[in-house]
Structures are given as structure tokens and as C-alpha cells.
Write a protein that binds this DNA or RNA. Structure first.
Lengths: 98, 98
DNA sequence: TCGTAAGGTTTGTAATTCAAACTGGTTGTA
DNA sequence: TACAACCAGTTTGAATTACAAACCTTACGA
């Protein structure tokens, strides 16, 4: 019996890429919404929806701040998110390396 | 700009596992439906639906034969399916290895 | 012949995905 | 001031997908 069960919160294409980027940045560092959007090349609508799901799962944080005259949203990964991502990656690599 | 675009036909959890198993078997070899079902531990309904999608994409073959008094379905991967799977795997590994 | 099981398929509901449309503030310019 | 264009993101609704329950058909044992 194969019991991989890849974490569905992470597995969706867009969210996997989001988590890959956020995992790559340092512990306390963060990325802005527009920056992430340009890296991933998806619409703002999709990014917004996927970020919310990741936030609901406790995998990322969204911090909204006032930057000068406008707003900026900083995205960061949580310890829990990093753990979940690493576990996801491990499961996937184990599945693919046969 | 990140342009991974993981093949959606393969990316779905269940289908990824199906392709992993079928890719692992030899060139002309095949696996029966019940055997695959027990390996993956999913319901027959899901397996049936996912196999059809993979077949529609030209990634696998389903050969129904008469075995004694009952039927048996043999599943095999096509060259095209193998290529698509290897490309998918490459894309994913490139994404995860940073 | 009745009940159970094997081998799948169909179907209905729920969840997911995506982008278009929208909100609200900012900057440029005439 | 007025108006257009833009930036930052959210909401919404239609289309797709996923899942398992229900179903069909044949086989087998009591």
C-alpha cells in the first residue's frame, strides 16, 4: 500500500511554486506581493486566493504595512510552513526516486 | 519569470502515483487494474476515472482481455507517456532543487 | 437460487482553479 | 480642479476536477 498523500495545500501547482520561493528566502526575510507575482507570473487574483489558503493553513504570514503613501504586503514562511514544505518535498522525492 | 507549468494531466496526486508505478515497470510489461488499485490504495472509481484521463492524453494503454472466465485489464505506459513523465519529473526536480 | 465477491463504470456533490471585474488609493497632466 | 491611467490587492462566478457512493455485470460457493 502506497501512502504518500502529498499535502494538498502545497501540492497545487501555484502554491507549490509559492512555497518554493518562500522557503528559499531566509528565516526572517520576506517578499512583497508584487515581487512574488512577477516571479511566479500569475494574476494578482490567483495569487491572492492561494496566499489566503496557505495563510489559513498556517504556512505563511501576510503582513500589511504602510510604506510611505501606499501599502505593501510582505509574505513570509512560518516554521510550520517550512516543516510542511520540507516534508512535502521529502515525500515527493521519495516517490520520484525509484 | 518562472515558467514551470507542470503537466496538469500528470500532476494530480493520484495520477502522479499511477505514472510513477507504470514508469517503473519495463518497456513491454503491464500491471492489472486490481494490482494497481492495491498498490495505490484508492477506490476503483477513482482509479477508473484517472486511468481514462491518462489514456485520453495518450500516456497509457488499457488492454481488456478475457482471462479464463473473467476479464482482466492490463495497464501499460506508452512511449509518449514515459516521455511526458520524465519531463514532468525533470521540471519538478529542477523546481525543488534550489 | 440466494448471497457474496470481483472487476470496473457512471454519477452527483463538493472542492478547486482561474481570470474578469471590482475597490480604493496614488500619480501624472492639462 | 478634473480626469485618466496605474498600482495593490480582493471578490466573485463560471468551469473544471476530484472523490466516493451507487450501480452494473459476471462468477462462484453454499
Amino acid at each position: 500500500m502506497m501512502k504518500t498523500s502529498l499535502d494538498p495545500v502545497i501540492h497545487a501547482d501555484a502554491r507549490l511554486r509559492i512555497m518554493t520561493v518562500l522557503n528559499a528566502i531566509g528565516e526572517g526575510d520576506s517578499v512583497t506581493f508584487p515581487k512574488l507575482r512577477s516571479i511566479l507570473d500569475i494574476t494578482a487574483g490567483n495569487l491572492s486566493v492561494h496566499l489566503r489558503k496557505l495563510e489559513d493553513a498556517g504556512y505563511i504570514t501576510q503582513e500589511k504595512t504602510i510604506q510611505g503613501r501606499t501599502t505593501a504586503t510582505y509574505l513570509g514562511i512560518t516554521p510550520r510552513g517550512r516543516t510542511a514544505f520540507l516534508e512535502y518535498r521529502g515525500t515527493l522525492l521519495a516517490l520520484l526516486d525509484e
